[in-house]
Simulated scan of single mutants.
Amino acid sequence: MDGFFSLFGKSMKELGKSPILLLAGLILGALSLPLLAGYIGVQQMIRSALVDFSQLVVPLLITPFITGGALGYALEVREKGSSSLSTFFASAKKSYPKLLICGIIAFIVYYFLLTAIMVFVLAGTVDPFIGSMLGFLMLGLTFFVLMSIEFYDIDVVSKGSGIMAAFRNSMDFARKNLLTAAGFFIMAVVLKSLVQLPLSFGMAGAMISNETYYNALMAMSNASANATNATAANASVNMTTLLSMGNITLSPEALVVVGIFQMLIQGFVFALLALFKANLYMVVRNRKKITDFDYDFSDEESP
């Protein structure tokens, strides 16, 4: 794993040479901001349209273009030490048709697995033991499947692979380099989750500042610390109170602050992961193994 972390450090250093990647990440962050509409007091129809834009239009139609450009840019940074906006757009246009279809396939796989997990969670309400066992198995399967197809995009950009070939190559890469693939996938999930930290802090602040929420939460906390029938009943009442209050809303000022920090984190995470994926995939894929060399141990002298 020394090579893994050294490549991560190399990618961190390359961020300074990659302003276009940071800008691309900021743009993606800005395009994701309509998701925050779920936390302001707007009409349900407008809120749904904004949320659908960020959850469907952006990942399915826009992200493949930006990803294709970013990975092409990152590959040139790896090879030459720097890159350019022209490289970004050339790679984006060349890779977009394949990445668009690959992205739709990956999107369908993701939501199929997510639906399966929810079904097993609901099954747990009928039989907790069987439901929990199936749920854990499904979580493991989801992790393995998503990790296995994680590298289809860099394969398309670096090799020009076709759609099915890109998925096959990604799965082959993950199978032959399981620890490396798992390490990258876990790191990617952790880094991407950081993008939601500003919203989490904003939500926590809104809940604490709301007296009804705060009192209900404190009562539930005390009930957990003093598990008696009376406190359990109170906890049930307070949970009902929390659920009946609906969504937490944030003030316009809080949303602006959350949006700015979310964009900044998105820009950093997107740029870093593009550089790291390009470095890791190319180094591991091109790594020479003893089986890659042809040795002739036969006697070269003619009999």
Score class of each variant (00 low, 15 high):
V284D: 10
S193V: 00
A24Q: 01
S193W: 05
I117N: 07
L28R: 02
M220V: 06
L35C: 08
T180R: 03
S11R: 11
Y96D: 06
Q55D: 02
V126S: 15
I248G: 03
L280I: 04
D299G: 00
M45E: 12
M239F: 14
V269M: 07
F5K: 07
D292C: 12
F151D: 00
M218S: 13
V109N: 09
G9A: 13
G160K: 06
Y295V: 09
L137E: 11
L100S: 03
F8W: 10
Q266R: 05
A232R: 15
F143S: 05
N215F: 01
L28C: 03
L33E: 09
V284N: 13
N169A: 15
E300L: 14
A274T: 04
E14S: 08
N177Q: 07
A206R: 12
T125V: 11
N279Y: 04
M245W: 06
P128K: 12
D127Y: 14
S221M: 15
Y281F: 15
S54Y: 11
N210Q: 07
V58Y: 10
S170W: 05
I20G: 00
N169V: 12
V284F: 12
V284C: 06
L36T: 03
F201I: 15
S200G: 09
E150H: 13
F53L: 11
F201P: 05
A204N: 09
K277D: 02
A123F: 12
I154H: 07
M118H: 15
L26G: 02
L199Q: 08
A204C: 04
I130M: 14
A174N: 06
Y214T: 04
N247T: 12
L197Q: 08
T231D: 10
L178S: 13
G81P: 03
S302F: 12
F167T: 04
P303V: 03
F89Q: 01
S158G: 07
S170P: 01
G9E: 10
T212C: 02
L28Q: 01
A90D: 03
S84A: 02
V51S: 06
S18E: 00
F151E: 00
N226A: 10
G246E: 08
V121Q: 13
A92F: 04
V269G: 03
I265H: 07
A116H: 05
D127N: 15
M138E: 10
L7K: 13
Y281M: 11
I46T: 10
L35G: 09
M282W: 04
L31S: 04
F120P: 00
D294Q: 09
V284Q: 12
A219K: 15
L243R: 15
A278T: 01
L179M: 12
A232C: 14
I260V: 13
A227Q: 12
L21R: 01
S224M: 15
I104N: 02
L56K: 11
Q55A: 05
R78P: 00
A70Y: 00
Y39H: 06
F261K: 02
V42E: 10
F112N: 05
V42Y: 09
K289H: 13
Q44P: 06
N210S: 08
S244M: 14
D299I: 01
V256L: 13
A181C: 06
E300D: 10
A181F: 03
I27F: 11
G124F: 07
L275R: 00
F88H: 00
N210E: 04
L99K: 03
V156N: 08
G160E: 05
F270G: 00
A223G: 13
